[in-house]
Design a protein around this nucleic acid. Structure first.
Length: 271
DNA sequence: ATGGTCGGCAACCGA
């Protein structure tokens, strides 16, 4: 049985619902995980997604900022929301697929939107950076993110960290830029190692090859110099390690009309 | 070396 998951920081789901439709009509993933929906739950475009065949939807939104959602063709048994750092920010939602989904054994899917962390890479001078580091520490210590004994877990999202040298266009020039500072990279890797996760992109693509999922809006032409970063991630627990069938970054989406600055990332499993 | 652009929501904040 094929099972595919797409993650996409949409940067306003209401503004870009037709881009979401375009993606869902062409890629047809089984599940779509969105971040930065910027949409209160009572204004979420449920109808349009249901029309597109994604009838099972879990949302965790708030007004103006953040917000995450999971839209699925397959029914899930339950959904859950976690908070981090004692804030009410909508930065996490998870769903559990059980018998109803027809995927065999249970499968848990976590969708995260990690804080961007502001501009100054100093936790003393910049509370937003401190928040980001604390958020990563809490993820590391979060028991539900530690799959064990052959449990099938997938973790996706905009993790706002590009951990490896070739996850950014210039390792040297970005060493002191939030998203690629050594302390963040270490902390993200600590999250990954706390749960024995596989970073699917780097399982599939050599560590020496440049891989990006985000290109800044602050460039007249985002293609000039290809100054991207790999901020969006899909991780799988060890139990899924030999089931990974495909991995795709839809770079084209950065050229769509009024695009998000992030592009969709999809992993396909042969369960 | 610096500033560059978005979206939400109604003056800036967050990214």
């Amino acid at each position: 049985m094929r099972f595919s998951v797409t993650t996409w920081n949409i940067n306003s789901v209401r503004l870009r619902i037709e881009l979401v439709a375009k993606l869902l009509k062409s890629a047809r993933p089984d599940v779509l995980c969105l971040q930065e929906t910027k949409c209160p739950d009572d204004a979420f475009p449920l109808k349009r997604l249901k029309q597109l065949g994604y009838e099972h939807i879990a949302i965790n939104g708030q007004k103006g900022y953040h917000g995450v959602a999971i839209a699925s063709k397959l029914p899930f048994d339950s959904s859950d929301v976690r908070t981090f750092c004692g804030k009410v920010d909508s930065r996490h939602i998870s769903v559990a697929f059980g018998e109803k989904a027809g995927l065999g054994a249970p499968l848990v899917l976590h969708n995260f939107y990690v804080p961007a962390g502001g501009d100054i890479p100093d936790p003393v001078a910049n509370p937003k950076f401190e928040h980001k580091l604390s958020f990563l520490d809490e993820m590391r210590d979060c028991d539900p993110l530690h799959p064990r004994n052959g449990e099938r877990h997938i973790l996706v999202g905009d993790l706002n960290v590009a951990p490896f040298e070739h996850d950014v266009w210039s390792h040297k020039q970005l060493l002191n830029v939030v998203s690629h500072t050594p302390i963040e990279c270490e902390k993200l890797l600590a999250v990954r190692n706390s749960g024995d996760w596989i970073d699917i992109a780097r399982q599939r693509i050599s560590e020496s090859e440049k891989v990006y999922t985000w290109w800044s809006y602050r460039a007249a032409d985002w293609t000039v110099g290809n100054r991207g970063r790999r901020l969006d991630h899909i991780w799988a627990s060890q139990a899924l390690g030999d089931k990974i069938a495909d991995f795709k970054i839809l770079r084209d989406a950065r050229s769509w009309e009024r695009p998000s600055d992030h592009v969709p990332v999809t992993a396909t499993f042969d369960l």
